[in-house]
Simulated scan of single mutants.
Amino acid sequence: MIFENLKPQIETIVLNKNKTVDKRLLSICELLEANITYYNWVGFYFRNGNKEELHLGPYVGEPTDHTIIPFGKGICGQVAVSNENFVVPDVTAQDNYIACSITVKAEIVIPIFVNGENIGQIDIDSNTPNPFTEADERFLEFVCAQVAMIL
């Protein structure tokens, strides 16, 4: 499966100390977006200091106005509060969804933990309805665990 083939590439990116953390995060976004057909926007959001908000980190895909997201708002903001994965098969069915693009049909957000604290998340939008499976969740948990080692 594609996820198993991508894992060693993620590990290689994470271990490349010749690149800054942001460049490594961007490389992960690029790798995922290029290799998984239904990953149409891939990015990282991180807690903004001590504020109850997330700020946008490296990403690939259409530009977004959502560079700051308050905790509790949208899918990303909800994950910042719940500390749990959030898979949205149909964004139109979510009352608290922040629309980034009219083409987005589904979203998955997986938190990143460092020393047990939720410090950010990977956010993926898909233009395909209901594409995410448990395999996506497990793979993205792996990605987040790798990313946590360099944050």
Rank of each mutant, 00 (worst) to 15 (best):
I69E: 07
G57A: 06
E62G: 10
E62L: 10
E84R: 13
G61V: 11
L56P: 04
A93C: 12
D95I: 06
A80K: 05
V114R: 11
L31R: 01
N115C: 02
I2Q: 03
M1D: 07
C144E: 04
P131V: 11
F142E: 04
L56T: 06
F46N: 06
I122N: 07
N96Y: 02
N35K: 13
I28V: 02
C100E: 14
G77A: 08
R47E: 11
K73L: 12
Y38P: 03
G43P: 08
E30F: 10
A80D: 03
D123G: 09
N83Y: 04
E117T: 12
W41R: 12
I13F: 00
M1V: 15
T92K: 15
C76D: 07
I122D: 00
G74P: 09
V109K: 09
G43M: 06
A148T: 03
V109R: 09
T12S: 03
M1W: 03
N18Q: 15
G57Q: 02
L26K: 05
E84I: 08
R47V: 15
L25W: 08
V104M: 13
L32H: 07
A93H: 10
K105G: 03
A106M: 11
I2R: 06
W41E: 08
A34D: 14
F44T: 05
D90R: 00
P131R: 00
L32T: 02
A80G: 04
E53P: 03
F86S: 02
N18M: 09
N118Y: 02
D22E: 14
E62H: 15
L32Q: 06
F113G: 09
M1N: 04
N48K: 13
S126E: 05
G49L: 06
L15T: 15
K7N: 05
E62Y: 11
Q121F: 01
R138W: 10
V109M: 02
L26M: 00
L54D: 00
C29M: 03
F86T: 07
A99T: 00
F113A: 04
V42L: 10
C100G: 14
P111C: 09
E4I: 10
E4R: 00
T12V: 10
L54E: 08
T20H: 00
I68H: 13
S27H: 07
E141T: 15
V104C: 03
H55A: 01
V104I: 01
